[in-house]
């Protein structure tokens, strides 16, 4: 099985998977890392290299599955911090950026434009609700001292299903933008925003995998009494 180690230079990780650049802001780490190794960059930034590598590996290798021991060693505080930073990036950066561009297209598209923009805003509010549910139920539980009892309001199945619904809408949007809007409406803008949505969609898929391979096994482990 492929996986990165602390001895790898961070630039090697990026060359393998450019998406990992997103890990830096989520862990509060800065650019300008030169040729430094992952373990050194983590130490400089006061970040656990174990957590950083765990996330980078899950993000990059489809077949990477954290071992039980790794799940045991998870620092719940660091995990929550990472997930909150991811949510913030999606809601306040990527979606705002995409909304701006869809807004431009919508303006040119006349009446149908309003419907398109509303569709996007509807999506935005669905995803915001999903994140808020996680932040209001799962995260406080993860940060609590006593994790033996899982609160009743945490429903992992429903959360996992809503990941799927969120993905469906984003895929609908890409189809509408390039396949069904009339050809003459802002083609370059549409191609640009299409790439942005595809990129966001890939990143959200990874976010789901992080929750599936790290967050959920962690909670299951606590519940089962093995952690």
């Amino acid at each position: 099985m492929n996986k990165f180690t602390g001895r790898n230079k961070f630039i090697e990780l990026l060359n393998y998977n450019p998406q990992l650049i997103l890990m830096l802001p989520r862990f509060g780490m800065k650019l300008g890392f030169g040729e430094k190794r992952v373990e050194d960059i983590c130490e400089m930034n006061n970040v656990s290299s174990f957590m950083f590598l765990l996330l980078c590996n899950v993000y990059s290798f489809d077949d990477y599955m954290p071992t039980e021991n790794e799940i045991k060693d998870i620092d719940a505080n660091a995990l929550v911090k990472y997930l909150i930073a991811s949510h913030d990036y999606y809601l306040n950066h990527r979606l705002k950026h995409i909304e701006k561009h869809i807004g431009k297209i919508a303006k040119e598209a006349g009446k149908i434009g309003d419907v398109l923009l509303n569709f996007f805003k509807e999506y935005e509010s669905e995803i915001a609700t999903h994140f808020k549910t996680e932040e209001d139920t799962i995260f406080p539980y993860l940060l609590s001292e006593n994790k033996q009892m899982i609160p009743e309001n945490i429903d992992l199945d429903t959360l996992s299903r809503s990941h799927g619904n969120i993905g469906d809408k984003l895929s609908d949007l890409t189809n509408i933008i390039i396949k069904y809007l009339p050809a003459e409406i802002m083609p370059n803008e549409r191609i640009g925003v299409w790439f942005d949505i595809i990129q966001l969609s890939k990143d959200l898929d990874k976010h789901t995998i992080v929750e599936e391979k790290i967050l959920m096994p962690y909670i299951e482990g606590v519940k089962g009494g093995s952690l």
């Binding site: 149908i112 419907v115 398109l116 509303n118 569709f119 509807e122 469906d168 809408k169 895929s171 609908d172 949007l173 189809n175 509408i176 396949k179 069904y180 809007l181 009339p182």
Partner: peptide, 17 residues
């Protein structure tokens, strides 16, 4: 056929067509 799953997405498709 359309590759659109959500009701609101289908509504846009119907309007566009």
């Amino acid at each position: 056929k359309t590759n659109i799953k959500s009701v609101s997405g289908l509504t846009i498709y119907a309007l566009l067509n």
